[in-house]
């Protein structure tokens, strides 16, 4: 292979004028983490709400929940990204549209909202599956004690369901984190985008992608470890 390896490239100054290529990648990592965490907050809360709606007795709530999930699951994330970024500002009144387009860090806000809504549909499916995996008698027992619907979910169904779905929720969290890379298509300078521009500027393809790969692997390992710790912390004594 006639490829000129240069592992020292990370410590050479980047063409941006400030800092090295390593700094460039680290700033990408920062945006990746910020986008992932902010969108997860939306995904978790909205997804829980939608998931709960899909398990409620009311047919209206079920229909709303189902429509949401079908809508956001059946359009590719890239397309959703473009809809939020290019189409939405044209669909709202002009004043708001112009404001949206001129917003600093618009690609960051768009990515957060887009990923939040997208991942919410997947979180909703996990929450629904978690609640439906509980014995039907649990809901009956809570109702028989006189708890209302809100109390039944708040004190009985959700606390058990969240424990059940902790492992798949960890995967969804990681998927959400990996999906932040799709936001490079709307100009978010996250980790993959940074690795790509480092490759373009320096022509050191494999060094830049190797670095990005290692960083993603380290993030995954960390998240899996943290999730394991959380799982042990919330484990209920006496359950398998």
């Amino acid at each position: 292979m006639n490829y000129n390896w240069n592992w020292g490239i990370f410590f050479e100054p980047s063409p941006e004028g400030v800092g090295t290529y390593a700094d460039m990648l680290l700033s990408g990592l920062g945006w990746t983490l910020a986008t992932a965490l902010c969108s997860w907050i939306i995904a978790f809360s909205l997804g829980s709400l939608i998931g709960v709606m899909r398990t409620m007795p009311s047919p209206v709530a079920q229909a709303v929940g189902t429509s949401y999930v079908e809508l956001f699951r059946n359009i590719p994330l890239l397309v959703q990204m473009f809809l939020w970024f290019y189409v939405l500002p044209e669909m709202v009144p002009e004043v708001i549209g112009t404001w949206l387009k001129q917003l600093p860090n618009a690609s960051f806000y768009t990515a957060v909202i887009c990923l939040g809504f997208f991942t919410a549909s997947r979180v909703a499916e996990q929450v629904r599956a978690g609640i439906q995996s509980l014995p039907r008698g649990q809901r009956a027992a809570a109702i028989a004690l006189g708890l209302n619907t809100w109390q039944t979910y708040r004190y009985v169904l959700l606390p058990i369901a969240y424990r059940v779905i902790l492992p798949p929720m960890t995967s969804e969290f990681l998927n959400n984190l990996k999906n932040t890379s799709v936001a490079l298509t709307i100009g978010l300078l996250e980790l993959t985008a940074r690795a790509r521009s480092m490759q373009e500027f320096s022509s050191q393809v494999f060094e830049s992608f190797t670095a990005a790969t290692i960083i993603y692997l380290l993030i995954s390992l960390t998240v899996v470890m943290l999730a394991g710790a959380l799982e042990r912390r919330v484990a209920v004594p006496g359950s398998r």
């Binding site: 292979m1 490829y3 990681l174 990996k178 999906n179 932040t180 890379s181 799709v182 490079l184 993959t192 690795a195 790509r196 490759q199 393809v205 494999f206 992608f209 990005a212 790969t213 993603y216 692997l217 995954s220």
Partner: peptide
């Protein structure tokens, strides 16, 4: 585990640049 830890976009870039070298090899 390796494949599942990486964003698809990054993997697409990887192979886009890597495959020609593998072909050469």
């Amino acid at each position: 585990d390796f494949m599942r830890s990486l964003p698809l976009v990054l993997v697409i870039f990887w192979f886009y640049f890597l495959v020609p070298y593998i072909g050469q090899w």
